[in-house]
């Protein structure tokens, strides 16, 4: 907002506000329209994460959480155990990576 507008008490162009609000509301709308959306996403997450750690998929939660100007995908995934083999493997990879 420039000084001129601020002195006059005018706010900036409202189009950017409209676009931003629309973007956020559509994130919620599009996900909300399909109840399966988050379920399918959750199953995919379980599949991928299970390769690295043993998780408690029964009490896992995946949700959208919104604040004023952002929407976040929030996943709460209780871990039961981390797979040891993979840790060793990633460490070995780290060592062989040339600097």
């Amino acid at each position: 907002m420039n000084l001129f507008n601020r002195v006059l008490g005018r706010e900036g162009p409202s189009k950017e506000v409209a676009k931003e609000r629309l973007r956020l509301v559509l994130v919620h709308d599009r996900v909300g329209v399909s109840p399966q959306f988050l379920e399918v996403l959750k199953e995919d997450l379980i599949r991928v994460i299970s390769q690295y750690m043993e998780i408690d998929d029964a009490s896992m939660r995946v949700d959208l959480s919104g604040s004023n100007n952002s929407v976040a995908l929030v996943a709460n995934i209780p871990i039961k155990r981390v797979k040891r083999g993979l840790i060793a493997k990633t460490r070995r990879q780290e060592e062989t990576v040339p600097r």
Binding site: G12, P13, S14, K15, E16, A18, K19, L22, R23, L26
Partner: peptide
């Protein structure tokens, strides 16, 4: 209104 930035323009809407 588009010109003074107070209305979404064509591109904005197609994009959204």
């Amino acid at each position: 209104m588009v010109k003074r930035g107070d209305m979404m323009d064509i591109e904005d809407m197609i994009d959204i």
